[in-house]
């Protein structure tokens, strides 16, 4: 009898993380990560593990540290003066803060909230910027990668006849997919997306979401979003941040159907935040 009860109480947690996820290799791991801006502490002891080939969504109200966490993963955080980080972040078991920052960023790509194609470059040059500026000269190879990346970003069919037009001539949604293609061109393992669809209309948003589903076959994706429906739609796991702390991290289905923390429930039901 005793045994049965304990089984029942444990059951939901196990079922909430799909078996296929639980068996996946760990891609990024954070252990006791704290981030500071001067005297301000933006992250408090964040520990979480991101499995390979999955989409992890980070949700939470503004100022909760979502973006800071994302930026500490690819070391963009340290570009801000007086910023500091403690704790350990690893990529494939390797300490990110022991690696060369430039190398980290080539393995962990990033897509920003507002599309930001380089204004002086054509569509093709935008995609190949990362390759060219890191010394790739082989024109044929560059062209191949440009096409592959644009196909991956589901933009190829729309721009294949205008590759030499300016990147800024595209619509907002196309520009954002161009930025995704640009990030993919340097063949990262991980793609960080900081509210990638918040500046886009619903149709473009749907395209980006569809894309994430395709991309997770080859990449590991971490997405910060304000839109809880989006998190529920695209992610396998969801982390809820509040006031710089990780309140809850679990399978997306569980977070949205039976969160174990009261704060999580209140946030997803719209009672605060």
């Amino acid at each position: 009898m005793q045994k049965e009860i304990s089984t029942i109480s444990v059951q939901p947690t196990v079922a909430a993380v799909p078996v296929e996820l639980a068996s996946k290799r760990e891609k990024i791991s954070a252990h006791q990560v704290c981030a500071f801006f001067g005297q301000n502490q933006a992250l408090k002891n964040i520990s979480l593990s991101i499995p390979e080939h999955s989409v992890v969504a980070i949700i939470g109200p503004s100022g909760c540290g979502k973006s800071t966490f994302l930026r500490s993963v690819n070391r963009m955080h340290e570009m801000i003066p007086e910023s500091r980080i403690t704790g350990t972040l690893t990529l494939d078991g390797e300490d990110i803060y022991q690696m060369d920052a430039v190398q980290v960023r080539r393995r962990i790509g990033m897509v920003f909230q507002k599309p930001n194609p380089f204004p002086t470059m054509s569509i093709a040059d935008n995609v190949s910027a990362g390759l060219r500026m890191n010394g790739m000269r082989d024109r044929r190879r560059i062209e191949e990668i440009v096409e592959r990346s644009l196909r991956q970003a589901a933009l190829w069919n729309e721009v294949k006849d205008s590759l030499f037009k300016g990147g800024m001539s595209l619509s907002g949604g196309q520009q954002q997919r161009l930025c995704i293609a640009r990030a993919l061109a340097v063949s990262p393992d991980v793609l960080l997306m900081d509210e990638p669809a918040s500046a886009l209309d619903p149709i473009s948003t749907a395209k980006i979401e569809e894309l994430m589903y395709e991309l997770k076959k080859d990449y590991t994706i971490v997405i910060v979003t304000h839109n809880m429906q989006q998190a529920a739609r695209v992610s396998d796991r969801t982390a809820f941040f509040y006031m710089g702390e990780l309140i809850e991290y679990d399978g997306t289905k569980k977070i949205f159907t039976m969160p174990s923390k009261k704060q999580t429930e209140e946030y997803i039901t719209g009672r605060f935040g």
Binding site: N74, M76, G109, F118, G130, M133, R182
Partner: peptide, 24 residues
Amino acid sequence: SYREAALALGISEWKTTLRIILRT
């Protein structure tokens, strides 16, 4: 945002300054 985009692509700081910021 252009500086961030370039750095996030793994482009080194001096190349970002010369080939993205100065170029723009």
